[in-house]
Simulated scan of single mutants.
Amino acid sequence: MTYPGGVLVLLPPSETKATGGNGAPLDLESMSHPGLTATRREIAEELSALAADVPRSLEVLGLSERQAEEVRRNGELWDSPTAPALERYTGVLYDALDVGSLEATERKQADSRLAVASALFGLARGTDQIPAYRLSGGTSLPGLGTLRSTWRPVLEPALAEADELIVDLRSSAYAALARTPGAVEVRVLSEDASGKRKVVSHHNKSHKGRLARALAQSAREPETVADVLEVAADAGLRVEQEGDRALCVLTSV
Rank of each mutant, 00 (worst) to 15 (best):
Ala110Thr: 10
Val184His: 05
Asp111Met: 06
Glu156Ser: 10
Arg213Pro: 02
Glu59Asn: 07
Tyr89Lys: 02
Pro81Glu: 06
Ala246Asp: 13
Gly143Asp: 09
Glu59Trp: 08
Gly23Ser: 11
Leu58Pro: 07
Gln109Cys: 12
Arg107Pro: 05
Leu250Lys: 05
Leu141Phe: 10
Leu93Met: 14
Ala96Ser: 14
Ala117Thr: 08
Val60Cys: 09
Gly143Glu: 10
Val92Tyr: 04
Glu46Gly: 07
Leu93Pro: 00
Ala219Tyr: 03
Leu114Ile: 11
Pro181Ala: 10
Ser118Pro: 00
Ser32Met: 08
Leu58Gln: 11
Lys196Val: 13
Gln241Ile: 08
Ala226Lys: 15
Gly195Asn: 06
Glu161His: 13
Asp168Glu: 09
Thr224Ala: 10
Arg125Lys: 12
Ser252Gly: 05
Ser201Gly: 12
Glu164Gln: 15
Ser201Thr: 15
Thr82Ser: 01
Asp234Asn: 12
Ala24Leu: 13
His207Met: 11
Ala38Val: 07
Gln217Glu: 15
Arg88Pro: 00
Ala162Met: 09
Arg187Cys: 08
Glu59Gln: 14
Thr139Lys: 07
Glu223Ala: 13
Asp234Ile: 04
Glu185Phe: 06
Glu59Asp: 15
Arg238Phe: 05
Thr2Gln: 14
Ala232Asn: 03
Arg125Met: 08
Ala175His: 11
Leu93Asn: 00
Glu230Lys: 08
Ala183Asp: 04
Ser14Phe: 12
Asp168Leu: 04
Asp27Cys: 10
Val71Pro: 03
Thr150Lys: 06
Val249Cys: 05
Ser218Met: 08
Gly100Gln: 05
Val225Gly: 01
Gly20Trp: 10
Val249Lys: 02
Arg238Tyr: 04
Leu211Pro: 01
Val99Thr: 11
Ala96Ile: 09
Leu247Pro: 03
Val60Lys: 04
